[in-house]
Design a protein around this nucleic acid. Structure first.
Length: 862
RNA sequence: GCCGAGGUGGCGGAAUUGGGAGACGCGCUGGAUUCAGGAUCCAGUGGGGAUACCCCCGUGCGGGUUCGAGUCCCGCCCUCGGCACCA
């Protein structure tokens, strides 16, 4: 009995792959390429099961496409800048650089041990200055084109991370990384003009339909938040200025009874001062800033401050009072809103609170509205009333008509606004890419000269104990000369948001050694990424930034590409149920007795089993990949990851499940190794099958059907779980055949060889090591990793006899084995001769016969 | 509240196009092997009734279309995810 020793086999073949460099991607414009990419990891220390799942899926695809003859690019690198490195440095007294590179070394070993088919010659880390220097150049060029700019605004500040966050990085008012509540601060910082691409980013989503998960497309669409409407000007009474509002409901213009301004609106401050309300206004504005979170969640009560000023309605000439209101956001539209209480719920609530008039201008299709008794705003379409010459128009039509009228008068125009805001990229952090500008006393803000790049992040920095960036205190870094006038200047000490690095790494993988930022030809050959794989948590953040950055680089002339990722697979999380003891809190599975009681300190309390959730250290429900590899080998871990669930769903970790996967591999190993000697010299069957026994013909049929099924599962759906199930069925079938068919049967060995070769080939992208071993045991000279994917023969796969289901009134009563091409008459005759069928037809009149060739026959009787 | 995905045995999950519901695996039950346990192998395994042939019920709930519905249509319930004073 051959014994399956995964560790031995796996390290052996990993060495062979390494020595022969078989996964090296070489540009070859004559061959069709396939670029598989998994989202690169942050080098946090060790890989977790989520990585294993993500990278296993990618690896299967890369290996499969290689077998299909594609020139495959499958690279790996490190998203190496970021805050955890600084935190670790504080805790353990190691420099972020050392910590990061050590982690990379460890994690690279882990990935190699899993046998992933990366082209390691293309590896890089984003904290290498040879990588980020190019990013600095991009920035300078964006600056020249106005795609990067500096401004002072209210920003999201995480007090725990000591840094600013982009809107995309604030989740429910808290920091996406540490969960601390985010506060508002007025600060200067650098921004990327992603809003200039809002329409294109939205439009581009259409071409991704069917290739990206619908969910991700929807999330991006909502995030960009396009809305069509109009800008309308309201002159101020007694002043030369005017207020410009944005509205999506120009049809309700005649219903305006007041104007609401954001407290951050410049005119709000001015009007307050003019009215002698300076102190009150300032207090109100401060309160609004503090309330920001509640305001954004919509839980804060509406509050306003009458500015004792009036605007003039552009059509009716009426005076409308102006308020500063806490719910009006300066960042959206124009920061000013025309309030129509009758037809907007927010304005309605505000009007009720401050006793402002409610004027109905839209009548519902049925019934009428009475401002006195209304309990909520009527926001649906209807017919315009009390609207001067526009009365009587359907509101949808009225929108157009009013805007046209305003355009003619020159006091309004059609306008589209987006919810998307510009991307704030300044971070007050040390471990990031320096922003290459200096502040010169004479010249102001000056970009570094391209030939002076990179602006290297100094590695001699002493980290601040409070967790602040040491850069501003680092004289040798800060003190510099102006690239323009040579005079004394101060260096920018903010670094880039680390999402900037991950916005273009997939391009650099095409030419990691290029001296220029990107080699147009090589990028053109390899890009777009044909299949991108990663977690859903980046549905907006990374994926939106990357789509934006790719377009920027296109406009800067570096690439000829709009969408970087042709297909996207968002894999589910790896989850596991946590255990909790009423006395000890979260406990490890080892601390639970078979009876379900707590073993900690002889506790004995009944343990509560939580519902499966994302693995986390604090819940004690993590499974360590190293431990699993040690116990079962990489192939088993990979197999389980693929088999337990389809990739887009969450995968529930199961100790029993991985045992099952291991058991299957042991069975396959023994099935083949125990016969390998006898089969080595045998050629796979090539005849037409006429000389074979029915059992052997059946085995060939099953084999070819399996090849067909696995190919379709991998090609069309990426459903590895059903592909594996199909191979398991084939293995079961082979074992059954071996039991029934004597070895001397003519053709036995060659048919067996054909089937076993298929098993090995079909499994090889998923469990490559064991398959190399079995492949060579079967006498193959080449590596299975370099073999061609097997093909199926429709003729062989076709069933000679099929089962026809016989129904009476839609209920199954019998089934018949008949030749595949049996016609209706034959089937009918056979079915009616069945005793079981006759019994159910007895005493009834046959009304109708439904015949589905090759499937079923249904007798309708009554 | 709005948008999206989903609800199938004890569990993870299958089911091309409307055509035998529950593939494959886990678990469980019985048996073989063993001094014993483990491992392995064999058989069974949706529920109920009969325990022989068979019959009835069954894919969140209620209706509908159809010879036939897990699959299509209408109305609800629940779970998960995203968005949510964006004018």
């Amino acid at each position: 009995m051959a014994e399956y020793r995964p560790e031995e086999i796996e390290t052996k073949w990993q060495r062979v792959w390494e020595e022969r460099q078989i996964f090296r991607a070489v540009d070859d414009p004559g061959r069709p390429k396939y670029y598989v990419l998994e989202m690169f990891p942050y080098p946090s220390g060790r890989i977790h099961m989520g990585h294993v799942r993500n990278y296993t899926i990618g690896d299967v695809l890369a290996r499969y496409k290689k077998m299909r003859g594609f020139n495959v690019l499958h690279p790996m690198g490190w998203d190496a800048f970021g805050l955890p490195a600084e935190n670790a440095a504080l805790r353990h007294g190691v420099h972020p650089a050392d910590w990061t590179y050590d982690n990379i070394d460890y994690m690279r070993r882990q990935l190699r041990r899993l046998g992933f088919s990366y082209d390691w010659t293309r590896e890089f880390a984003t904290c290498d200055h040879e990588y980020y220097r190019h990013e600095q150049l991009f920035f300078i060029q964006m600056l020249e084109r106005g795609l990067a700019y500096r401004k002072k605004t209210l920003v999201n500040w995480c007090p725990s991370c000591h840094t600013v966050l982009a809107n995309e990085q604030v989740e429910d008012g808290t920091c996406w990384r540490c969960g601390t509540e985010v506060t508002q601060r007025e600060m200067e910082g650098w921004f990327f003009r992603i809003t200039a691409y809002a329409e294109e980013l939205l439009e581009g989503l259409k071409r991704l339909q069917g290739k990206w998960p619908e969910k991700v497309l929807t999330m991006q669409r909502n995030w960009i938040g396009r809305s069509e409407g109009a800008e309308i000007e309201f002159p101020l009474e007694g002043l030369s200025e005017k207020i410009t509002v944005f509205t999506t409901r120009p049809d309700t213009l005649y219903g305006v009874t007041f104007i609401s301004l954001s407290p951050e609106h410049p005119l709000a401050e001015k009007l307050a001062e003019d009215s002698g309300l300076r102190a009150e206004f300032e207090a109100f504005r401060q309160r609004c800033r503090r309330q920001r979170r509640e305001i954004e969640e919509g839980v804060a009560e509406k509050e306003g401050l009458f500015l004792r000023a009036y605007a003039i309605h552009p059509l009716t000439g009426e005076r409308v009072p102006i308020f500063a209101a806490n719910f009006v956001l300066m960042e959206y539209g124009t920061g000013a809103v025309m309030a129509v209480p009758a037809h907007d719920q927010r304005d309605f609530e505000f009007a009720k609170k401050y006793g402002l008039p409610i004027k109905v201008v839209i009548r519902p299709p049925e019934g009428d509205l009475d401002p006195e008794t209304m309990e909520a705003a009527y926001e649906d379409p209807g017919v315009m009333v009390n609207s001067g010459p526009f009365s009587g128009l359907p509101s949808e039509e009225g929108k157009q008509k009013i805007v046209e009228h305003l355009e003619n008068l020159g006091v309004g125009r059609r306008r589209i606004t987006y919810r998307l805001r510009d991307w704030g990229v300044s971070r007050q952090r040390y471990w990031g890419c320096p922003i290459p500008v200096v502040y010169c006393e004479r010249c102001g803000v000056v970009p570094e000269k391209p030939e002076n790049l990179p602006v290297k992040l100094p590695l001699n920095a002493q980290l601040d104990e409070a967790g602040r960036s040491p850069l501003p205190q680092l004289e040798s870094f800060v003190k510099t000369r102006c690239p323009r006038c040579g005079g004394p200047a101060r260096r920018e000490t903010d670094t880039f948001d680390t999402f900037v690095e991950s916005s273009w790494y997939f391009l650099r993988f095409a030419c990691p050694d290029a001296r220029e930022p990107l080699d147009r030809e090589r990028v053109h050959y390899w890009l777009p990424v044909d299949q991108y794989i990663g977690g859903i948590e980046h549905a907006i953040l990374h994926l939106l930034y990357a789509r934006f950055f790719t377009r920027v680089l296109r406009d800067l002339g570096y690439v000829q590409l709009d969408e970087p990722f042709e297909r996207l697979l968002t894999q589910g999380m790896v989850i596991k149920e946590p255990y909790r003891c009423p006395r000890h809190g979260w406990i490890y599975p080892e601390e639970v007795s078979p009876e379900g009681t707590c073993l900690k300190e002889g506790c004995g309390e009944k343990v509560i089993v939580g519902r499966p959730e994302k693995m986390s250290k604090s819940k004690c429900n993590v499974v360590d990949p190293d431990e699993m590899i040690r116990r079962y080998g990489a192939d088993t871990v990979r197999l389980f990851m693929l088999f337990a669930a389809p990739p887009e769903k969450d995968l529930e970790w199961s100790d029993r499940g991985i045992e099952g996967a291991h058991r299957f591999l042991k069975r396959v190993y023994q099935l083949i190794m125990n016969r390998a000697d006898k089969l080595r010299e045998v050629s796979p069957y090539t005849g037409d099958g006429k000389d074979l026994s029915p059992e052997l013909r059946a085995l060939r049929r099953k084999t070819h059907q399996t090849i067909r099924r696995v190919t379709r599962d991998l090609e069309e759906r990426l459903h590895f779980n059903t592909a594996i199930a199909a191979v398991m069925e084939l293995v079961n079938f082979i074992e059954d055949t071996l039991k029934e068919v004597p070895e001397e049967t003519p053709g036995f060995r060659s048919v067996l060889k054909e089937s076993l070769r298929a098993v090995v080939l079909l499994l090889s992208p998923m469990t490559p090591h064991i398959c190399e071993e079995l492949w060579s045991a079967l006498g193959e000279e080449r590596l299975v990793s370099e073999a061609s994917w097997p093909e199926w023969d429709e003729e062989v796969a076709r069933e000679e006899e099929i089962t026809i289901v016989v129904q009476v009134n839609g209920r199954v009563r019998d089934n018949l084995r008949l030749p595949a091409d049996a016609d209706e008459e034959t089937v009918k005759r056979a079915a009616l001769s069945s005793e079981r069928v006759r019994r159910h037809l007895e005493g009834k009149t046959l009304r109708k016969v439904v015949f589905v060739p090759g499937r079923l026959i249904n007798f309708v009787a009554g």
